[in-house]
Nucleic acid binder design. Structure first.
Lengths: 199, 199, 199, 199
DNA sequence: CATGAATGAGACTTCATTCAT
DNA sequence: CATGAATGAAGTCTCATTCAT
């Protein structure tokens, strides 16, 4: 009747609700871990009925993967904001590094969520594969560095794994000791990374 | 007083069973993840009745922590087998690095289990604290390196975090692409690490 | 803050179900004893899924205590229906006695449940404490009797314990021999009680 | 061989062990309740292997019933120690009453155990029936009282139920308030009982 | 489309009893 | 006969998902 007409032009899916579910999931995981995450907690925190959540996501797994992919893409974009093809290799490396370093530290909830996912067997194949896509520009940058003989001739994937692992290991220690992220420490870490890869 | 007698811990009899439970847990976690681990799966895999397991461990949590601590200690020891106080800094660094690198790659099940535990909310305080103990000799080695002005003057914890993270990131890539661990790659990684920290 | 929202109690919706769970629990305990009571039996008897019960009660213990307190309050009220402050001591004593006597006999399930609870280690403190509240008017009545020198000057608690115990002992015998509760027997028991306490 | 000869004349059943199991069961039940009683707790407390216990008792139920019957008989005997057929009704009533009263209060463990059993569905028929046997002499005493027109003409069973219930109710209150058992209180209770039944 | 009570499979854990030593 | 480790059925409780309103 009337109601159906009135609501007919409403979007069948309210993107706000998706965002709310994402946000709530992120916060919950940071508070109780991925293992402690339950659908009813998501529902309560998002102030949505269980059924509503299932109109937006087919399953708990889908919520997790959807958020995972969203964050992955977001992080991949953010990291390049100061990237400029006209800059030197070192300048671009620093540009990327500084944001990655800064974000890893300050967007702790998000990186914590991603880490929990990675060790969780919740991720579907398309989430796992996603990884690669983000690295196009970094690959190009590293190739450029190699062409300039500025960096060691090691497979890009390995270099990227090395660099990301090292940053995360470094920051994990920082957090474990409640140390703030200072300019000096950023420079220390950058120096470690640059010295590592330079030829 | 009766009560105190009754609630005294049961003494397990067959140390083989503890080992079997550990082994089975390790394998199961590598197959189905820590979140998928259930007591009945452990029982079935170890060919023990559910109740038997509870003769040896008070809870699932205790199995996990017990295995975690066992592996931590084992790894901490292994890494030093070629360490020799009379060697140079670089020689000792290489000695430790090579084993750590090799073990991280080949004892994948064990390192995977430890990683799963670290992000799991299953670890008890004594498991978490354990971490520190293992690093005594590495700390000494790094101090020596700093005294020789061989390496950068950065806090040991951060260096260790950096190095372990970088090795694990490097190896994660290797595995993701099913690449074998060759002598050449070990040297590559060692070079990356040494160049990173040298002053 | 999210946490506080999440862990807020679920509000049950259907008060009928609470009643049904109470009723079924009462019947089950009379058939199989409190020790034989299991959640799955409650579920089956109430024709509710196991999980549903946990929407209304947090635990088995809570079901038991909830029913215990409900019955306690119900009995405490019932016993006073013919109580009238303008009546004489003896008339009021008789008024209370007759209903208590009658109810103890005919609401066997309920009194059996309460007795099982009392010896069970299931009762929480608030259930145990509840006891006292019910006796306010009886205390007043006994005080009145003492003032009139109608009854012995013995502490009210002891008198109440004596009277309730004696009635229950008397009725237990009646039931053991499948004897019906007649007017004559009620008078016999009343006479025993009145003669006991009169000074 | 030799051993079997040497031990051949040993009693196959060591009565000491039975006693120890009884004793330990009694204590355990008073500490943790009948519901908390487990075979392994009995074993630990009695310092006997589980198997040993099963050579003396077929089941947990048998231990409980065996102890129940033992205590019932013991109590039935004890109560008559000052009974003397040549004494007056009142003297004998007092003789029995005082011991019963005293024992109910001071052998709390034993009476607690019996009460737990009574509400437990553990008792076998022969334990339940046992009740009756103990009352032969009390029945005779009450008959004597009736013949003398000293007491009300109410069925003995009901009188006994009334009297035992009243004593236990009275003492339960005493214990609930941590009141000591004094001579005065014993006399109070005796007066209540005697006045109740006297014609 | 929104809701959240209902569901039941499955998780962890206990314990009476057995049986190999 | 003594032992106590081994067993597995059964208990309590959780939670992803559904469906009637």
């Amino acid at each position: 009747m009337l109601l159906s007409i009135i609501f007919a032009d409403m979007k069948p899916r309210d993107p706000q609700k998706i965002e709310r579910i994402h946000q709530v999931t992120l916060t919950l995981v940071s508070e109780i871990g991925l293992a402690g995450l339950t659908m009813s907690k998501i529902g309560k925190a998002a102030k949505l009925g269980m059924g509503t959540i299932y109109t937006y996501f087919e399953s708990k797994e889908e919520i997790i993967n959807s958020l995972y992919q969203f964050l992955k893409r977001k992080h991949a974009e953010e990291v390049y904001v100061n990237f400029d093809e006209n800059q030197s290799f070192t300048a671009n490396f620093r540009a990327i590094f500084e944001i990655f370093f800064h974000n890893c530290y300050h967007q702790e909830e998000e990186y914590f969520f991603l880490e929990q996912c990675r060790t969780s067997h919740f991720l579907t194949l398309d989430s796992i594969v996603l990884e690669e896509a983000a690295f196009a520009r970094i690959n190009a940058l590293l190739d450029e560095g190699k062409a300039e003989k500025a960096i060691k001739n090691i497979a890009n994937d390995l270099l990227i794994g090395f660099l990301m692992g090292s940053v995360q290991g470094f920051l994990a220690q920082l957090r474990r000791q409640d140390l703030p992220l200072t300019k000096a420490r950023t420079e220390e870490a950058l120096a470690l990374c640059l010295d590592a890869i330079k030829s």
